[in-house]
Simulated scan of single mutants.
Amino acid sequence: MKQRRLGRSGLTVSRLGLGTMTWGRDTDTGEAAAQLTAFVDAGGTLLDTADVYSEGQSELLIGHLLREVVPRDDLVIATKAAITPDGHYDASRRHLLGALDASLDRLGVDHVDLWQPHVYDPATPLEETLSALDEAVSSGRARYAGVSNYAAWQLAKATTWQRSWPGRAPIVSTQVEYSLLHREIERDVVPAALDAGVGVLPWSPLGRGVLSGKYRTGIPADSRAATPHFAEFVQPYLGEDSRRIVESVATAADGLGVSPLAVALSWVRDQPGVVAPIIGARTSGQLLGILETEQLTLPQEIRDALDDVSDV
C-alpha cells in the first residue's frame, strides 16, 4: 500500500486507515485479529480508534492484539478523546490528559502516534484544549497532534494558535466526514486544511456504508442499518438524493468491472488534501475487498461525472 505524508509533518501513513469503532462490541477478538493481520499484510499502518469506541473496549482489544498478533512498531496508532461516557463534550485540560492516560493504559503502550480532540468543545477555551495537546506531545505520550470534527474556522484558529509561539505542537491532521454523499467540507474545511498544511483523514468515506450499494434494494438483515445502535446513523443517507448518487457509482463500477465500493473509496482517497480515508469493515472478507481498491485509480472522465452528480 502506498504511503503518504501527514500534512507538513514528517509522519507517513498508509493511504487507507483501518477504523475500529465496532471492535469490542460487534467485532470480536478473532475477527479483529483477522482484519488487523490482513491490513498490515497489505502494507496498512494507520489504525484509528477513540476512547469512547465500544465504551473503551476497542482500545482494550487493540492492546491485546498488539501483544499477541501485530507488533506495536508496525502501526501508526491514532486515538481521540473529548466525549464523556454519557455523551457530553469535555475538552478541558483535566479531562483530556486523564483520558489520554486511560487510553495508554488500555492500549498497553507508552505513547500513541496521533492524538486528537474528538470534537470541538464550545464550553472550553480553545487555547486550553490545545495546551493539553502540547503537554501530550512534550511529555512523549503522543508523537503528533491533530483534531477531529472541527469546523473550518475552528481548524484555522487552532492551527494559527499553534504556529504563533515556538514549541507548541503543530496540528498535522483533521478527521472529518467526507464522501460522495457528504461533500460539504469542500467549501471551507478542505481549503482551510490545504492552506494550513493539515492532512485530511475522512471518516465514513463510503457514506456510512450506503455507497457500497448494499442498500439499493432495501436494508439487509446483517447490515449496520439493521442494528439498533447504527440505524439512525445510516438513515439520513437512504433518501432519493443519495439513491441517485449511488446509482451513478454503480454505473461507473459496472463500466470499470469493479465494485461500487472501490469506485466510491478511490474517489475520496484521491481528492485534494486527503491523506487516508478511515475504513471500517464488518468482516475480514469485506476488508480484503476494500484493500483491493489500492489497485484502482479512477479515469478523469469518471471522476468528473461523479463530481457533477454529487455536486454540493
Rank of each mutant, 00 (worst) to 15 (best):
D121V: 02
Q175H: 05
A169L: 04
W203T: 06
R224K: 12
W161R: 06
T159W: 01
L11M: 09
S58Q: 11
R143E: 12
G199N: 11
L18G: 03
H111M: 02
R106M: 06
T251D: 14
L194T: 05
R143Q: 12
S173C: 07
A102P: 01
A152D: 13
T20V: 02
L181P: 00
I185F: 08
R5T: 15
E232H: 14
D188G: 04
R67I: 00
L61R: 13
G17D: 12
S310D: 12
E31H: 04
Q300E: 15
P202Q: 05
D188Q: 11
R269D: 06
D222T: 13
M1I: 08
V210C: 07
Q116C: 02
V312P: 15
I219T: 14
Q116E: 13
H64G: 10
G146F: 06
Y178F: 14
H182P: 00
I185V: 15
R208G: 01
P205Q: 10
L256V: 04
Q35G: 03
V234T: 12
V275E: 09
A156T: 12
L104K: 11
Y89Q: 07
S212K: 01
A152P: 00
V147F: 02
T174M: 03
R8Y: 00
G207I: 03
Y120N: 13
S259T: 15
G87E: 09
D254W: 00
V112Q: 10
A253T: 05
V234R: 11
A81G: 12
A169C: 07
A264E: 09
S14A: 09
G7C: 05
P117R: 06
Q286I: 04
S266A: 15
V268A: 11
S58K: 10
T283H: 09
I279Q: 08
S92W: 08
W23L: 10
L6I: 11
G43I: 10
T20L: 01
P71T: 06
D134K: 07
D110Y: 02
V40T: 13
R224L: 15
L298S: 05
L133E: 11
L60D: 14
T174R: 00
R143A: 12
Y215I: 09
G285V: 12
V70A: 09
I77F: 03
L96H: 05
V210A: 10
T227A: 14
E68W: 06
V258M: 06
Y53S: 06
S266T: 13
L155P: 02
H111K: 00
R4M: 07
V176N: 14
V52D: 08
G108S: 11
L47V: 15
R187W: 07
